[in-house]
């Protein structure tokens, strides 16, 4: 194969790796928005807490990869439910702005609380043996393979849960109509908690994978990654699960392309310009449906 094609395939692989981490976080944003029409700005920090859980479990308890991943996911899921019960549930009837501000506050609290406990960046020990394979000049590392396949697996699982199970049906029902769904005997509070648990669990998985790929973690790492994942959710049409996955791979590709052509400091600039232009042109996203404002 020619040099050019190999280069592009290699970049496509990198884009796939970045996109799958973004996708796992974006799903949390989009699921919560779909059900509560609320932007959970603390979600990026749940992802950061996931990376720190991964650090704690792997360095102090010396666990291997699979139990670390599972325990991290459970830990962040519990954290997600706690945040929902303590901070968001009392505000469900309040003006929407209150919920957004509370979410910002929860995010800042998580960042600074972690900073107070862990003032210096942490190094994650090697959880997986890093093997690289070479196919006709394209390098694939075992970490990349694990990240991509695991996140695709989790996304398929989520799609199955949302489309095929009773809980998923209840979630879709709540996002369709909040007034009549409780009358049909659906436990709304329970379903909302489950949604937060799933979203936060996926963010925990993303945190673990991010820590695998980029082993230095700090309390503020969740801010930028969280906003980027949020862009993905908006690009795909917020509230739309398949849209969030599509948006994540689009943003991953765009970012890798920008870094390939321009200085890497332009990455954020291009990502946010893309967001701004897209919202002005097509606010409901690529896969979303236009919302009709009724009087």
């Amino acid at each position: 194969m020619s040099e050019g094609i190999i280069y592009w395939l290699q970049q496509a692989l990198n884009a796939l790796q970045l996109g799958s981490i973004y996708a796992l976080i974006a799903l949390g944003y989009t699921m919560v928005y779909g059900i509560l029409t609320m932007i959970n700005f603390a979600h990026g920090d749940v992802f950061m807490i996931g990376a720190f859980f991964c650090f704690l479990l792997s360095s102090t308890l010396n666990l291997t990869f699979v139990p670390t991943l599972l325990l991290t996911m459970i830990g962040t899921a519990i954290l997600g439910v706690l945040i929902e019960r303590l901070a968001y549930k009392p505000l469900r009837q309040a003006p929407r702005v209150s919920a957004i501000i509370t979410a910002l506050g929860v995010g800042m609290f998580l960042e600074n609380f972690t900073l107070a406990l862990a003032p210096y960046p942490k190094h994650i020990p090697m959880l997986l043996e890093n093997v690289t394979w070479n196919f006709y000049g394209i390098t694939l590392s075992s970490i990349q393979l694990v990240i991509i396949s695991l996140s695709l697996g989790l996304m398929l699982l989520l799609d199955y849960i949302v489309q095929r199970t009773t809980i998923g049906m209840a979630m879709r029902a709540i996002s369709w109509d909040k007034t009549f769904v409780p009358l049909m005997g659906i436990p709304v509070d329970f379903i909302i908690s489950i949604t937060f648990a799933i979203g936060a669990g996926l963010a925990g998985a993303a945190g673990t994978m991010y820590a695998l790929a980029y082993p230095v973690i700090d309390p503020y790492m969740g801010i930028m990654v969280g906003w980027k994942a949020f862009i993905c959710a908006v690009v795909g049409g917020i509230g739309n699960i398949r849209g969030a996955m599509a948006g994540a791979f689009i943003l991953g590709t765009v970012e890798i392309m920008v870094v390939a052509f321009f200085p890497s400091t332009f990455r954020d600039f291009v990502a946010f310009t893309l967001l701004m232009v897209l919202i002005m042109v097509r606010p409901y996203g690529i896969l979303g449906k236009p919302r009709i404002q009724k009087v």
């Binding site: 209150s98 509370t102 910002l104 506050g105 609290f109 003032p119």
Partner: peptide, 20 residues
């Protein structure tokens, strides 16, 4: 010095919850 950055967002959350 460290904990005041924890206290400020906590105040914000409490204001929003109990004193909107």
């Amino acid at each position: 010095g460290i904990w005041r950055m924890v206290i400020m967002p906590l105040i914000l959350i409490l204001v929003m919850l109990y004193w909107p």
